[in-house]
Design a protein around this nucleic acid. Sequence first.
DNA 1: CACCAGGCAAGTA
DNA 2: TACTTGCATGGT
Length: 216
Amino acid sequence: MGSGRRLDAMYRAMLDALGPSHWWPGDSPFEVCVGAILTQNTAWTNVEKAIAALREADVLEPEAMYSLPQERLAECIRPAGYFNIKAARLRSFLKFLKDQTNWDISALESSNTDSLREQLLGIKGIGPETADSMLLYAFNRPMFVVDAYTARIMTRHGMAPEESNYFELQSLFMDSLPEDVPMYNEFHALIVRVGKDWCKKRASQCAGCPLEAFLD
DNA sequence: CACCAGGCAAGTA
DNA sequence: TACTTGCATGGT
């Protein structure tokens, strides 16, 4: 429970400075899952365009989306980039929903978190960050989401070695913070916002960063 | 013009 | 196992 205080202080500093993020409220768990796949290595503004196109095509619902030929699905999501790959990934997720839930995504609510995580990771195109984003933001499970910004911020603050893997970074948070879904939700969102605006890959434009006081 | 974005899988040695 | 590369649009 050592670094818990520091993480909590960082969380409050970011929240005080930036205010709540209202991230991924989504119109449905399915929509959140679609967004999680589309946003892989892609700016969210581009994802919004793709989701709008899916809604316009009236396929923002599992069975309808699966009935759309992959090539046309790819065309809808073109603005999100990697459209051919992501169309295939959406379809592998849709096939999972069909096979495991008979198109009733709410059937997944009864699975325990660890087995649901394993199931999601078994789908081609869903890696640890996408699976955990779905668990936290679509299924309201207490799973901390790690991304490139999380790694950068933690290493830059001397709280994790450069070579830390996903699980090690995730454990840093989950071993010392309470299992609090709304807090995990907001914490990850704040990390992304701070990473985008201040914690750049190179140079250090740390002036004004909400976490400036936590640098050594 | 270069660089980056809420990653992942496949290929190589 | 540990690197490297392909995937692709849109904003700064």
